[in-house]
Design a protein around this nucleic acid. Structure first.
Lengths: 231, 231
DNA sequence: CGACCATTTGATATGGATCAAGCGATGTGG
DNA sequence: CCACATCGCTTGATCCATATCAAATGGTCG
């Protein structure tokens, strides 16, 4: 992965959203989410369709209602860096410049709640609790990114173990993880190659730390071993 | 760097700040900085002394008046990850949890403006422009961290080139960079070893991209070559 | 001047990338 | 409904960038 030649060809961009229907606001829990629900609209995106592109004006804030999303950036050498995965309930598209610094795509078919940033900022001006939540949200994002850095300086086993633990924490109450994303997505997220991710999973299975039921379903068999590997 | 055994011994912690004298506020330019200047006090830290430690309550926000600062985290395996370098004018110690997630140390003797977070938050509640600046600041920090991630997935030459360009941008008007930090600091920032950093600098010099006048002073001879290497 | 620490340089080892092939699942057209 | 094409995943063999180990050099401070 340290070499210059293009590795991951840019995938066939945006297969024209299958049916991006507009639907009216669902419900939410906290005041920010509530506000978003009231102010926004839900849009349906088909698998692999683009939600927004790098360098597009960042006019909206997004919340995953169903399905999952990846953000990414294509590097000069053609490689792709996945910025993050967003699952049900997660908010993405937070930007502080006027333009998006990453692109976002639907990993699976999904419904996304979309809110005008303007409207939200206006609300934040009036409602201190919303403003505070925005700041908190940003803080969380910062934390997430800082943790990514810690992941990226570890070895392959530690990265994969860390990834699995993170997904387990966010996604599933039990020990079964349903991965919406492909091995390539994971590889591009962790700064590894597909082959390495695959091999690492196999080796974790050999050590009885996990069980790869199907390629998209992984069962944690030994969290403490994983945590330990995670460093 | 992928191995488990401890590599960088934790350096002799906090040689008892030489003389942490308290002085009254210097001047600043924008409203946030002004506010900080009015509300805070300047503290002097000796080289290598600790400014705050991981897991300490994050009660203050800090601004570099003179000198330079590194934030870092010691990993379980004993390695050190440097989170960032802060030069004159930079603000650090932004946290969203109640505790610091990183430690901070003076790289050189330095003067730091210290402000109670409480006081600042209170002010932000009253003054919208201060609140906005705080959010902007956080946004910048987020950007910085995201760029770090992009750095970390590149090869050694690209990382070092990127680091030099960043330092040149932040630190110096011309092409001469005065590095306050050691090779070890740089290595721990870039996720490389000292040896690799040193070798890479030598190779950049061989290619006539830079000139290493003294170990702490580097002259950029060919920015475009560096930018190109940077990927 | 001498001790110590930072930096550089050299030799070797190794983890993950790369190249290549095989396998399993999924979907499509006949 | 099956044969085939395609795509995603796994496995194997080899290579290379960077880590690791070791030693020499240089710079700084008592």
């Amino acid at each position: 992965m340290h070499a210059s030649p293009p590795i991951n060809a840019v995938r066939p961009r945006s297969l024209a959203p299958r049916a991006n229907t507009l639907v009216q606001h669902p419900v939410a829990d906290d005041s920010l989410s509530q506000a978003m629900g009231l102010m926004g609209a839900t849009i349906t995106y088909a698998r692999n369709s683009e939600i927004f592109g790098e360098n597009e004006p960042a006019e909206y804030l997004y919340k995953v209602v169903s399905g999952s999303v990846r953000t990414y950036k294509i590097l000069n050498d053609g490689r792709r860096q996945v910025g993050g995965f967003y699952l049900v309930g997660d908010i993405f598209g937070l930007e502080f410049a006027d333009e998006h610094s990453l692109s976002a795509e639907a990993i699976t078919d999904c419904k996304i709640l979309v809110v005008k940033r303007n409207a939200l900022n206006a609300l934040a001006g009036r409602d201190a609790s919303v403003a505070k939540q925005l700041l908190t949200l940003t803080g969380c994002e910062l934390h997430r990114v800082q943790n990514r850095i810690l992941l990226l300086i570890k070895n392959a086993q530690q990265r994969v173990a860390g990834f699995l633990l993170e997904m387990a924490r966010r996604d599933s109450p039990g020990d079964v993880i349903e991965l919406p994303m492909s091995r390539q997505d994971i590889a591009d997220y962790l700064g590894l190659t597909v082959e390495t991710v695959s091999r690492t999973l196999t080796s974790l299975e050999c050590v009885a730390a996990i069980e790869v039921t199907t390629s998209r379903r992984i069962v944690l068999r030994n969290r403490s071993a994983l945590s330990h590997l995670n460093g």
